[in-house]
Design a protein around this nucleic acid. Structure first.
Lengths: 191, 191, 191, 191
DNA sequence: AATGAATGAGTTTTCATTCAT
DNA sequence: TATGAATGAAAACTCATTCAT
């Protein structure tokens, strides 16, 4: 019972991800989601109260997945640079291996697809990275600037790689990933 | 006559900018655009062949305005760093003074709002910056990496500032702009 | 379930027939069809993919009904003249008893209301009559001319009676039908 | 002045004929007519009170042209069969040489494009043919049936040839025209 | 819980007609 | 008379959501 419930819910989230990441929120009718999830249109409303709720839930789910991936193998004892590097590579790895998820998150960054409240909620996931940066600042390894600036140069550029990859303009090779990390680190470090 | 022509066209572009930047492409019905432009719904189609054409035209117009602003005062004789700095501050200045335009451009980056052909067309505007980067690479001042990487760290982060400013989360002060440029420069330079 | 399905589909086809035969394809908005069928406007699109599909479906349906009526009681063993006569009277009988259907078919003859492909599809229904004519030609009872000519004189004139009847100009009595058949037969026979 | 007037009026009628015969009444916007006639949209309303009036005028004009052609060389002294033959060949000649006009008339036959009153008005043009038939009936050369029947078999089939020719299905050769006339004559004569 | 037909408000777009110039 | 931009009502079609089964 519970399993079945979970199954349908997951199928719906997965279908939504597929369609929204490929065609955008507003080009994704509920009917198509239902069809792809192999479920009746009305059934969606047993699991989500409306389309907004469905997308918000998906956003939270993916953000969670993404953050879990990002902090995989991370522990707070690590030296700052090593920590930043681990997280950065975890992030790019996740985004490259999960293009639909990455694309969906990208779309959510600059649009009003996701409710404001949900977006805020998702911000908290990043706390360990904020803490790490703070430690770096105390150790005078990381520039003493607002975390917004650090985010803009260390995390945000990843979205760009996803966007251009999607359009088949450009693919980030392993070597480029190394360079890219060096650039990110140069941006945020004091050294 | 010509004036009136231009007037209505401009009013329509301006109304579209307002509404799309605030509510997104798909939450902006033609009827609302017409209303805000103080024009009848049918009139739109005297100036644009359809909604897509209207948005594409707006995109090209703003991209043009943005690039003009970006290269204001720039000449190719300038030393590389000076040139990069000038352009970078021009860009941030434009985006901060024209939040609606900046927001609209941001929305276009990661979505399929704008036709592929039009987006490509707009890319050419950036050529002087690509040329400058290339010169910087010849002079071994700028990292020898793909321009996509340079863009990701030197230009793309500006969109983030726009997005968070829009949500009143964070405002980039003059001082922060200085820091931010230093970060961008550190990312892309070899020094 | 199935019944209800069929019911609404039929109601829609019937409403379309009514309105198109009275006011023409382009003076028949979907909204009116929906209203007459006692159905919401959106419901039409559960049964037909668009207006063209609705009209094409109606055309096929009626053509089918008409051809069934035309060949009622016909068998290939009959002498040629008897066969032609039977079919001819079946046709006029159908058209006189089903003026809306007859009128709809008439409208389709000379306009581009119906898709070319669908019209072709419907042509095949006439095959038995073409075969009969061919037999008649082999037996040298029927003029050795293109079936188009035979059609023009033996079948096409029926549309005229429908058209004028519709305008209440003229009604074809039983006696006139006899004369009319004699005229048709005189036109196509060699005797 | 008058000339110019007439010129524009003619240009408008001609443009309407072109467009309506190719695309049908309802697929022919006033704007297109104006453009093809090299005239402003508003100007149409100096010559015709509305779209219906424009089409009605065109219908009368063409019907007039057609009837003139039909009775070319005809005089009432001619023997009946000769007269019928002359008129019949005049008609087919006109229709084959003026496919746009013929097609337009065909479209008007079975639809509500033309106002009822105008259609009636046009009927009177046929009077000489009706008179000829009547003479034929007095001379017992032509079947003693309603002129509607005579029309259905002697004139109406011509519309069919136009319709199929338009669709490139079938072209009536000179030889076929001979056969066709024989069929028409067989239908209406007593002999 | 699950279904999916039905809804009807909302969307883009067209077009006959008007009217200020 | 001629223009053609402007109008706005109406058209075809979409889709989130509901509800009887």
């Amino acid at each position: 019972m519970t399993d079945k419930n979970t199954d349908k819910r997951s199928a719906l989230l997965s279908a939504t991800l597929d369609l929204v990441s490929n065609h955008g929120f507003h080009n994704t009718p509920m009917a198509k989601i239902a069809k792809l999830a192999d479920v009746s249109a009305g059934t969606i409303y047993n699991y989500f109260s409306n389309k907004q709720d469905l997308v918000d839930s998906l956003y939270l789910h993916i953000k969670d997945e993404f953050t879990n991936a990002a902090f995989q193998g991370y522990d707070e004892e690590k030296p700052v640079k090593e920590g930043v590097k681990l997280i950065w590579f975890n992030m790019i790895e996740y985004k490259m291996s999960n293009p639909k998820q990455a694309n969906f998150l990208s779309q959510c960054e600059n649009s009003q697809i996701v409710s404001a409240s949900v977006r805020e909620q998702a911000l908290q996931h990043l706390q360990p990275l904020l803490d790490l940066w703070e430690r770096g600042q105390e150790e005078e390894i990381i520039r003493d600037v607002s975390p917004y600036l650090l985010y803009a140069y260390a995390v945000y550029p990843l979205s760009f790689f996803v966007a251009v990859k999607k359009r088949d303009e450009f693919h980030l090779t392993q070597e480029m990933q190394q360079h890219s990390f060096e650039m990110a680190w140069s941006a945020i470090t004091t050294k």
